[in-house]
Amino acid sequence: MLTRDLVLAALFTAIIVVLGLLPPITLGFIPVPITAQSLGVMTAGVVLGAKRGTIAVLLVLLLAAIGLPVLSGGRGGLGVFAAPTTGYLIGWVAAAFVTGLASEKLVRAQQSGLMQGIGFFVASLLGGVIVLYAFGVTYLALVTGLGFSKAFLGSVAFIPGDVLKAVIAALVGRAVMVGYPLLPQRA
């Protein structure tokens, strides 16, 4: 790996950490507050691509594991991996990878802006919602013994917020691609 790719991943980790420090937003039509940190996970894939994006997210989890309060709400330490929602944290890694891979496949520099935006949105939805919830719900179902359908029912309230994040991630991805294109140069 080039030093530049390592630095890009580490800088993006810092961005994800700072996004976790922003206060959560409550929107009228969505029942649960939205934190910006999982937006950072989708954006990592969209902006950096599969390899560097995955490394950035792995670094966030590593920092949390060694006792730094880097997760939203100042959470950190090995204790956060003992929560019923740990599946979502593990899923972050897969989410960044899938979002990154799909972005690399779907988005080309010569496409129109609209097509790029749609490509990024589909990639974010695939990684940041479908893959993420597959991990989160599976873990919740296994650890509680609730079974899949009930575990899914308990998570459903968070989906609208995450779809909204996929829209924002797509817009961010497109804007960064115009301002500082990284995706064409693969890691």
Binding site: R4, V7, I15, I168, V176, Y180
Partner: peptide, 19 residues
């Protein structure tokens, strides 16, 4: 959106120097 985009571009823009 208007917070994240300049923050990401500015931050990643210093990657070359750091590397």
């Amino acid at each position: 959106l208007t917070l994240a985009v300049p923050m990401i571009i500015l931050t990643l823009g210093s990657a070359d120097e750091i590397a």
